[in-house]
Amino acid sequence: MIGYIIRRLLTAVIVVIGVAAITFAMLHYVAPSPVYIVLGTKATHRAIEVWNRQHGYDRPEIIQFLSYLNNLIHLNFGYAYKFSQPVSALFRENAGRSAYLSGTALVLSLIIALPLGIVQAVKRNSPGDYAATAVNFTLYSMPSFFLGLILIQLLALDLGWFPPGVSDTVTSTLSAITHPRQLFLPIITLALLNVAAFSRYMRSAALDELAQDYIRLARAKGLSERGVLMRHLLRNASLSTITLVGLSVPSLLAGNLLIEILFNYPGLGLLFYNGLTNLDYNVMIAYTLLGAILTVLGNLLADITIAAADPRVRLG
């Protein structure tokens, strides 16, 4: 097991370096240097050249990439010129709030989606299943911000139960936790979107398992439907969902992006958005890399969990 994890980690590192190279190349192509943020778009040609030389942006791309990698190893993500702060400091500040938002939404959605999917599979083609499928499908086909807007309209503007956006008083992770009313809408929006994806997946996973012969044997043993469900179906159907959750870690990050912008919630997504509109080179690359690292870690975690939970999986 330990050997397997080490081997997987090594592969993960290689993938991350590959991602870094691709991201770096892409970013370089889109915005070769952060000089315009610093000197403004009206800077003279000469001034730009001088600045680029001073900050190393005139070197060959490969050298720039290697020096970036070198910094990366020392957890130095470069300087965010727009924010006049090191990127790592900015990330440290915002990561907690984003994690809180994503984490709560993820847990909430799993609590709803897993039982929902199984119940839908067991009662398939019932009116309840149809209704849930319809809602799921619609949510699944909806841009995340649009769902947010509808909820703002309904719950904030029309009913006035919750504030339409997160107020400026929420500045730290702690204050985010202590102001549940402020965060209700963003969390619910994110959670609903996940419920749609998870329960749809869970339903089909459970349907696949229900068609298996061992379910029939369990019934032939005299187990009640509930017993069949709890003792045999739940675990096997959940196995495939583990993978899904692992894979959805990065999409939570991307989901955050829109939700944070919409509700003006100061997390990593909003930071990226501000970096993006200002072409803040180092913020963009760092956020992209973070997404990739989370993806790789999510995969890894899912694989390890599966390996631990499913006796059929042999680590190789």
Partner: peptide
């Protein structure tokens, strides 16, 4: 493909869309 798949789609698209 594995490497590219680990970069979140939306983020890549946004970065490219700036240009």
């Amino acid at each position: 493909v594995d490497v590219l798949l680990s970069i979140p789609f939306l983020i890549v698209v946004l970065v490219l869309a700036t240009k």
